[in-house]
């Protein structure tokens, strides 16, 4: 269980997080979405007590992180892959962390095995690839078998096999009844992993909903192809639909696919294709965060 309440974090004059509140409960994967600079990492760092909130609070299992006795047994966090001493061996890194939280040293070998790094146990962290360091960070997060897990941009640097692995891992962890919060700036990634999303922009909450509600909320149309497009378009307009020609197809708004089919049947126009479309989650996300993109390239403006 993660609770963020009225969190404000100011750096100098700018507000990285500006009155953010949300909750993450056990049993599902919660996606934490926002453009670069939206305040995702700052929020996660505030939850972990690395940054002191200017005001508001962030609680894990009802307590401030710093008040947890053996925090790694309750919370596992993957912050960034570089957060380890490059000269230390992978196994020693985990042993150091396990020792600090009274976790049995056998967990170091177990988690290395679990993330597929058993063969690299005695390599120095500086010699590992970004993807392998990312896996080591996941091993560190899993070390204390915690009930709450936070991953900041976990797919960074992973190869396709690794990305698939971490998606499964996060879903499995949630299915075991753990609380899982995953940040990303890519909606497409979250669409494949998350059950719920918390979308933020410029440090503020934009929306918090289930993935399904989010995709339902965004405009839909029906794509239709038929033997006589102009005739069908006229008939649909008479049925009060909005019609837009797209190449050799018609995009219909205001009617369901079923209604479009019935209109065509009454006109005896053979249909070649009838496809209900929802705006992709990617589009939904861009629409949601459009006002809050902080660093934008000229071309997309």
């Amino acid at each position: 269980m993660i609770e963020v309440r009225d969190l404000i974090k100011r750096y100098g004059g700018s507000r990285a997080v500006d009155g953010l509140s949300f909750e993450v409960k056990p049993g599902y994967v919660a996606g934490f979405l926002g453009p670069n600079g939206a305040g995702k990492s700052t929020t996660m760092r505030a939850i972990l007590g690395l940054d002191r909130p200017t005001s508001g609070e962030a609680l894990v299992n009802g307590k401030r992180y710093a008040d947890l006795a053996h925090p790694m047994r309750q919370v596992g966090a993957l912050l960034d892959a570089g957060a380890a001493h490059g000269g230390r061996r992978a196994y020693d890194h985990l042993r150091v962390l396990a020792r600090s939280n009274g976790i049995d040293r056998s967990r170091a070998a177990e988690t290395l095995e679990q993330v597929g790094l058993a063969g690299a146990a005695n390599k120095r962290i500086g010699t590992l690839s970004l993807g392998m360091r990312q896996r080591l960070g996941v091993a560190a997060a899993l070390l204390g078998d915690p009930g709450v897990l936070m991953f900041d941009e976990p797919v960074n640097g992973l190869d396709p096999e690794g990305i698939r692995w971490i998606r499964h891992l996060m879903r499995d962890l949630a299915a075991e009844g753990r609380t899982v919060l995953v940040s990303s700036h890519l909606m497409s990634e979250m669409a494949l992993t998350a059950d719920r999303v918390v979308v933020i922009g410029r440090g503020r909450l934009i929306t918090e909903s289930s993935m399904k509600d989010l995709s339902d909320r965004f405009r839909r149309d029906v794509l239709v192809r038929s033997a006589d497009q102009p005739a069908l378009a006229r008939a649909l307009e008479q049925a009060r639909a909005a019609v837009v020609f797209e190449d050799d197809a018609i995009a219909v708004r205001g009617l369901t696919a079923r209604q479009v089919g019935e209109v065509a049947a009454r006109q005896q126009i053979p249909l070649h294709e009838l496809t209900p479309r929802s705006a992709s989650l990617e589009d939904a996300y861009l629409e949601l965060t459009d006002d809050s993109v902080e660093y934008r390239t000229e071309a997309t403006r």
Binding site: L48, L50, A66, L68, A83
Partner: peptide, 18 residues
């Protein structure tokens, strides 16, 4: 300083937040 230089300090403070 090796912990600040490598980012290990964040991992260290997450493991020992006090």
């Amino acid at each position: 300083t090796s912990e600040y230089g490598s980012g290990m300090i964040r991992t260290a403070l997450v493991s020992v937040p006090r």
